[in-house]
């Protein structure tokens, strides 16, 4: 009665595909880096600084195009430099909300003291233009001081996470395994940043959290396969490394796919039903689970063929007399 998606005795030669996978990954990484420098990330207010005000229409109403242009001219009259006024949600001509985004106030314009007042001015202008009973949904004002700190904290968190994982794998396995794991992690992070450059989804603090989760998840996947490789190295002392790795990936394939699917079920439901606020976050996680699974199977484990590994994992340090043990 149980359903088995992946037959338990697959014998796919993953090692054979490793060159192709490496080429694909290298291309994807180059593509991501190119996208980063040409398209760039669409940094959210957390990292860019500035003021964002989101308003909703009075209960039971919508914003038409006229309200949008009224809002645009009202906010434009404040003389705040580069201001974006956009409608969100609903349908064309009957929007569910209007978002005003103001760039961070520069020192020449009055700096941080001034910026605190800008949030109020924008709200007042919107009330004037759209009516006093509009709903103030969200007001964010981040000064360059704070956004700079958040960028720094975000980058630090990612670097520390990757280094800790490196240390952990080194400690639990050996350095060859760390290399493979870290390359796979970095690969996942770069590709996720790349997809955010291409899609121009907003890159916020939550995305950093998503990246850290992806690191944890991809690592989780990798460790399971490594664990199996180590076990098989003990078990089959004479088997060529290449075959040990292939065997291990195949043995854990059912688990790898099963866990990816359950995690995907959860994050896809977040993406679809978790609301606008979590959309970017859950998108990053969906992408991360896919990329993380791929990199585990095709990058992290096969890389051990190139780096080579210690063959003697017997716990009682007796010399390895390969087939002597039962």
């Amino acid at each position: 009665m149980a359903l088995q998606l992946i037959p338990s005795d697959t014998k796919i030669d993953f090692i054979k595909y490793r060159r192709i996978a490496q080429v694909i990954s290298a291309l994807a990484i180059i593509g991501s880096i190119t996208a980063f420098f040409t398209l760039g990330l669409n940094f959210g207010i957390d990292f860019r600084g500035g003021v964002t005000v989101e308003v909703g229409p009075p209960p039971g109403e919508t914003f038409d195009d006229q309200s949008l242009s009224a809002a645009r001219s009202a906010v434009g009259a404040l003389g705040l430099g580069d201001v974006q006024v956009q409608s969100i949600g609903g349908t064309a001509g009957a929007a569910d909300g209007i978002v005003v985004a103001v760039e961070a106030i520069t020192e020449e314009q009055g700096g941080q003291e001034r910026q605190a007042a800008v949030a109020g001015e924008v709200q007042e202008a919107l009330r004037q233009a759209l009516g006093a009973d509009i709903e103030m949904r969200r007001v964010d004002s981040v000064t360059p001081t704070v956004s700079g700190e958040l960028v720094q904290a975000g980058v630090t968190a990612l670097v520390v996470a990757i280094l800790l994982m490196l240390a952990y794998i080194w400690f639990r396995f050996e350095w060859q395994f760390s290399i493979g794991a870290i390359l796979a992690l970095t690969h996942d992070v770069i590709l996720t940043i790349g997809v955010f450059c291409v899609t121009q989804f907003e890159f916020t603090l939550a995305i950093i959290a998503a990246l850290l989760t992806i690191i944890g998840y991809s690592m989780n996947d990798t460790v399971v396969i490594y664990d199996r490789i180590r076990e098989n190295l003990r078990k089959y002392k004479a088997m060529p490394l290449r075959d040990v790795i292939n065997l291990s990936i195949n043995q854990t394939l059912g688990r790898t796919i099963m866990t990816s699917l359950t995690t995907l079920l959860a994050v896809v439901s977040l993406f679809l039903f978790g609301g606008e606020v979590l959309r970017g976050f859950s998108f990053a996680l969906i992408w991360g689970v896919l990329v993380g699974t791929y990199s585990t199977v095709f990058i992290a484990a096969p890389l051990l063929v190139s780096t080579g590994v210690k063959r003697d994992w017997s716990e009682n340090k007796t010399p390895a007399t390969a087939d002597a043990r039962p």
Partner: peptide, 16 residues
């Protein structure tokens, strides 16, 4: 494998 795999997520959560 369970312990190893979950410790990595725990490390990520700790850093966050």
């Amino acid at each position: 494998a369970i312990i190893d795999a979950n410790l990595t997520t725990l490390i990520a959560a700790f850093i966050m």
